[in-house]
């Protein structure tokens, strides 16, 4: 077993926030569903099913909140979470530019940033791996499979 021990557990506050979000999601679904029209049993409307599911979410969110003290399966958010934020940022940029400048440059850049800054690999290795990976993706997806992803070359 190489499973590392779990990071510090979060308190009841995290669970309460989660439960609140679940209730909000369910409530929004119910509101949207009612707007769509619920219909009747012989002619069910488009909103009937989402309304039922949304109501279930509200109830379940309530149950979760009521049991917030007993649940210990959540982890505390710590400063290392900033890494995740940074990684997400690079991917958001990837999505934003891929349609405009093709996938090659964003792919090299994303790989390089993850390797060098998030992974603390050496400059040389980061450069080699990111360029090689991009070339491999190009050959595989554009060359062999004929995928129509926006590309420069």
């Amino acid at each position: 077993m190489t499973e590392p021990e779990r990071p510090p557990a979060a308190g009841a506050a995290t669970t309460l926030v989660t439960a609140a979000l679940v209730v909000v999601l369910g409530g929004a679904a119910v509101a949207g569903a009612l707007n769509l029209g619920v219909g009747s049993a012989s002619a069910p409307g488009p909103g009937m099913w989402p309304a039922l599911v949304g109501a279930a979410l509200v109830v379940l969110g309530g149950v979760l909140a009521a049991r917030a003290r007993g649940t210990e399966d959540a982890e505390r958010f710590t400063r290392t979470g900033l890494l995740v934020l940074a990684a997400t940022g690079t991917m958001v940029v990837f999505v934003a530019v891929v349609g405009v400048i093709g996938f090659e440059i964003p792919t090299v850049s994303l790989a390089f940033v993850w390797l060098r800054f998030l992974g603390r690999e050496s400059w040389r290795l980061s450069a080699i791996v990111s360029v090689a990976a991009t070339a491999a993706f190009y050959l595989l997806f554009v060359g062999a499979l004929g995928v129509t992803i926006p590309h420069l070359f």
Binding site: G102, V142, G143, G146, P150, H151, L152, F153
Partner: peptide
Amino acid sequence: ASVATVLALSACGGNLD
């Protein structure tokens, strides 16, 4: 045939118009 396809596709260049 597949090699030809690969070549044809790479020859067509980018698709960014």
